[in-house]
């Protein structure tokens, strides 16, 4: 069989057999064509995630293609086709459809205060105003400060709190932060993920499973959820990473997406790097939070809120992605 790779980008075409995909993946790896090899390994992993040898080599390659920039661990998510949505749950989760998503890097955790300062080169408070649990100036985010303090500081010492998810984060605030950070970079830029990028990242390379780790129901060892009485956040890195090395894609905080929400988007939208409708009322949120029931943590569950900042919620944060400037 000739090595035709159009199927890697075409949602309407099936790929070759598993063994052929694996052989091509190792061929490309040997030639140093890592991006293509990663896509091929990813396609193989979706077919047989329990093939330990291939799964380990895929993981090694994805680890090698990941990077640390501005203090953020960016995990590589290969280009490829995946099945977005589900045929269970709410109507807006379907119909399931195969979509192509270009390669990108996703932050390994939702945005933290430490990351925010690194991205924007925002100075830390001086020694005279050193961050303490009682010092609201450490966050400098207006009304959101008080919410952040409660949910971050309640769970541990101040130093660790800075590495928990930022909450009460507005969509526009996050966009401004991304734009400011992108100005300081050549070749790449930061932004929120599209809904398709988010779901591909959340699935971790597994095909048609409910959660980032598979179909098993969430437990407290896997995700931060159903803890309304606790009013606090868990360290996202205490939960095992998914197949792309991303922590807490289910639970912890709802994560903003770039797209406007449209319940009919899957039935009508494009299948190559879909970006949602051109206009809308509310922006998409994904992933579920520390307060939600397990069904809201499914990788296909969709929610949306207004972007005007009128609602500040300790359930809402964001996870950034890093894309080449050639990608919109």
């Amino acid at each position: 069989m000739s090595e035709t790779l159009d199927w890697l980008r075409d949602p309407h075409r099936d790929g070759p057999d598993y063994d052929v995909i694996v052989r091509w993946a190792y061929d490309r790896l040997a030639r140093g064509e890592n991006a293509l090899a990663a896509s091929l390994f990813d396609a193989a992993y979706a077919l047989r995630p329990h093939d330990r040898s291939v799964a380990n080599d895929r993981k090694s390659l994805l680890d090698a293609m990941s990077l640390v920039e501005h203090g953020i661990a960016w995990r590589y998510v290969p280009a490829g086709v995946f099945t977005m949505g589900a045929d269970e749950g709410d109507r807006d989760e379907g119909p399931p459809r195969r979509v192509f998503v270009s390669a990108f890097w996703a932050a390994d955790v939702a945005l933290t205060e430490t990351q925010r300062r690194a991205l924007t080169a925002l100075a830390w408070p001086t020694a005279a105003e050193a961050p303490t649990p009682s010092n609201e100036q450490v966050f400098l985010r207006g009304q959101a400060v008080r919410i952040q303090r409660v949910y971050s500081l309640r769970n541990g010492p101040a130093g660790r709190a800075l590495d928990l998810a930022l909450v009460a984060l507005g969509w526009e605030e996050t966009l401004d932060l991304c734009n400011a950070a992108s100005l300081r970079l050549d070749g790449c830029r930061y932004r929120l993920p599209t809904e398709a990028e988010w779901e591909k990242a959340a699935r971790g390379g597994l095909a048609r499973q409910r959660y980032p780790w598979g179909d098993d129901a969430p437990t407290e060892l896997r995700a931060d959820f159903e803890r309304l009485n606790r009013e606090s956040l868990c360290d996202p890195r205490q939960f095992p990473p998914n197949g792309y090395g991303l922590h807490a894609m289910a639970g912890s905080v709802w994560e903003w997406c770039l797209d406007w929400y449209d319940a009919e988007a899957y039935a009508e939208g494009p299948t190559a790097d879909p970006r949602g409708p051109a206009d809308g009322r509310v922006k998409v949120l994904r992933g579920g939070s520390w307060a939600d029931c397990e069904a809201a943590l499914r990788v296909s569950f969709r929610w949306a809120l207004a972007v005007n900042g009128a609602i500040l919620s300790p359930c809402v944060g964001a996870r950034l992605v890093r894309v080449p400037r050639s990608v919109p």
Binding site: G89, D90, Q143, A144, V145, R146, I147, V150, Y151, A168, L228, E231, W254, G288, S289, A291, D292, C293, E294, A295, A296, F301, W303, I311, L312, S313, P314, C315
Partner: peptide, 25 residues
């Protein structure tokens, strides 16, 4: 399939104007 509950800052720590959302089955 799920229901959305809202908890105001009077009920749960959420700053002055914050809202805690909980999706329940």
């Amino acid at each position: 399939t799920l229901s959305l509950e809202q908890y105001s800052a009077c009920e749960i720590s959420a700053g002055c104007i914050g809202v805690v959302f909980r999706w329940s089955d």
